Computed example of a mutant assay.
Amino acid sequence: MNGEEWSPHHRFCLAVTQSSFKKGEISENIRRHSRLVYCTAADGARVISFPELSITGYEPTVAAETANDTGNQRFDSLQGLSDRRYVTIVAGCPIRLEEAEPFIGAFSIRPELPIEFCQKQFIHPEEFSWFIPSDDVVVYQSHWHEIGVAFCADIGHPVHAVDTFQKLGNSCAVDAMAFSECDSPAVYDLAKYARIYRFPTTLENYVAESGRLPTGGRNTVREGHKCRDQENAS
């Protein structure tokens, strides 16, 4: 299905992915992203989301050397895939602007549109050695829906959900990229925000250890009063 064939009348399908990625090996990780995009797009997904820092793995020790500059062309192959399959790809990587340390970042690749970048607002105390926080609240349009991007530490802060909701203005999908245990407070926050603000929330985890952290468990999709957990998949 291409952009000319897709319309707002089609069912909107958002996919959350769970996989393992190699520490700092960007080319190999992009290939893994591409394979997952092909599979999920074939099943009708229009927005396909990956875990926090998926392009490098959740590996703070290599963040400085693997950080992406927002004008970098390393994602051209994913942009081409987005254009051909008419899908939006949300993935994570360190982002460096002018500061000494990088941000924990995410990029959203949309069909035939500029890449949207955002940086994590609230970082964990142990991340301060490697990253800096931002004040980003990013909402963008994909397939006639609004998408908001959050991160693990962000989704535990009510202000992030409130700011995102105020930017949205209508009922739409919100994507939360996270690395959290299934029974963590963040997961309950996702359910609460879905119920209060009446938009879907998602949680993406790694299927294997990354950055010496164990896998966070199953992916989760919260649709207001509903909840679906995805079993681990490689």
Rank of each mutant, 00 (worst) to 15 (best):
H9D: 15
D154T: 10
C172E: 07
F179C: 13
Q73E: 13
G216M: 04
I147P: 02
S171V: 11
E5N: 14
Y188Q: 15
E98W: 06
F107I: 14
C182G: 11
E4S: 15
R31C: 05
P214D: 10
R85D: 00
A233G: 09
G156W: 00
Q79D: 10
R110W: 05
Q18G: 09
T70E: 13
D229S: 06
Y58P: 00
V137Q: 03
R46E: 00
G169R: 14
Q166R: 14
I147R: 04
F151D: 05
D136A: 09
D183H: 13
S134G: 04
I48C: 06
G92P: 05
V221N: 02
G216F: 02
K192S: 14
P60C: 08
P102N: 11
L203Y: 01
A173N: 08
G92S: 10
A100D: 11
T164P: 00
G224Y: 11
L190C: 14
R74I: 12
T66P: 00
S108K: 03
P60G: 01
N232E: 03
G71E: 12
E181Q: 10
T40C: 12
S234H: 06
C182S: 14
S49P: 02
N205Q: 13
L14W: 08
V16G: 13
V37D: 01
V159E: 14
T202I: 10
S129F: 09
Q141I: 04
N72V: 02
T201D: 00
I89A: 01
T66Y: 02
C13A: 08
E112M: 05
I89S: 02
W144T: 13
Y206F: 13
F107G: 09
R195P: 00
R35S: 11
S34F: 03
T17N: 09
C13S: 04
L81I: 07
G24V: 01
D136E: 03
S20G: 07
Q230A: 12
K167L: 13
C172L: 02
P200R: 08
V187M: 14
F21D: 03
G3H: 10
F117W: 15
T56H: 05
K167E: 10
N2T: 06
H160I: 14
S82W: 05
G148T: 10
A15I: 04
D135V: 07
F179K: 14
T40M: 14
W6N: 09
S134K: 07
E4V: 13
V207F: 00
V137N: 08
R195K: 15
G24A: 06
S19I: 04
L14A: 12
G216R: 06
A150D: 04
T215G: 15
F122T: 11
T61N: 08
H157L: 11
R11P: 07
E146A: 10
G92E: 06
A41T: 04
Q18M: 15
H160T: 14
A194V: 05
I132G: 01
E209G: 01
H160G: 09
G216I: 00
R32H: 08
S82Q: 03
V138Y: 01
H143R: 06
R212A: 11
W130Q: 05
S108L: 14
T88I: 06
I95P: 02
F131A: 10
S20V: 03
C13R: 13
A106W: 00
V139H: 01
F75Q: 04
E99H: 15
E98Q: 13
G216L: 04
H33D: 01
A150L: 15
I196C: 07
